[in-house]
Design a protein around this nucleic acid. Structure first.
Length: 224
DNA sequence: TCACTGATCGTCT
DNA sequence: GACGATCAGTGAG
């Protein structure tokens, strides 16, 4: 009948009580702060925060893993040129490219170059920060580690679907990027590896992740 | 922890 | 009609 795990239609909010952690404050990233080159942006995004205000409430996660998909990269969805599906990948940097994959899952990218150039950064995993109960409800699992570990899981936990495709992540809206939290522990060791789940250009080291983070996806040998 | 497999459906050739 | 930037479940080591 209906697709089982695709994010459902937005429920009509009946002013649910705001969980205490939803009041955490984040500073929205300005586009000028985003590096204008894909690899640099992928590295930059590690430690940044993705914030979803998709109803019924706020959920956010610290980005701990992402992959760069470059212009002219055979593994990138933009490789064959612009289509109806991937057109948001050709928007200027800082826009959401959301696509549906394997009949079950949505994945979120951040467009990464100037308008007209197809490239992006796939957000693969996050460490849940706020709205954890909401993520649990969306995901149907309780283990915090499994809420955002993997691109499909991350999108589902944040309530991201086709409706979020094309959103400006540097503007006010239901989905946006926030600066890393300052203070002790703000600086992390970033590792690099080959990308996961692709067959073309599979040897390129374009995946970045937080070393030793339990929230990173993929086999252990890629994460040391 | 890893390897394997089925589910599921939009997109593209 | 084939493929795919995945996930969850199962079984083996």
């Amino acid at each position: 009948m209906t697709s089982p795990r695709a994010p459902g239609p937005r429920s009509r909010s009946t002013s649910p009580p705001e969980p205490p952690d939803a009041r955490a404050r984040f500073r929205r990233l300005r586009r000028a702060e985003l590096p204008s080159e894909t690899v640099a942006l992928a590295r930059f995004l590690i430690g940044c925060i993705i914030v979803s205000d998709v109803p019924p409430g706020r959920a956010s996660a610290r980005i701990v893993e992402c992959e760069a998909y470059l212009p002219g990269d055979a593994a990138a969805h933009s490789f064959r040129g612009e289509t109806a599906r991937n057109r948001t990948l050709f928007m200027r940097r800082g826009h959401a490219y959301v696509y549906f994959i394997y009949g079950n899952h949505y994945c979120l990218n951040v467009s990464s170059e100037r308008a007209g150039i197809g490239a992006g950064v796939l957000l693969r995993a996050g460490e849940p920060l706020t709205g954890i109960d909401l993520m649990r409800a969306r995901r149907g699992v309780s283990a915090e580690r499994d809420l955002c570990r993997g691109p499909g899981r991350l999108a589902q936990a944040l309530g991201i679907g086709a409706a979020e495709d094309g959103l400006d992540l540097c503007a006010a809206g239901p989905l946006w990027l926030a600066a890393p939290r300052d203070g002790p522990g703000g600086r992390v060791a970033v590792g690099a590896s080959v990308r996961i789940g692709i067959s073309k250009e599979a040897d390129r080291v374009l995946r970045y992740y937080v070393r030793d983070s339990p929230y990173v996806s993929g086999p252990k040998k890629l994460n040391s």
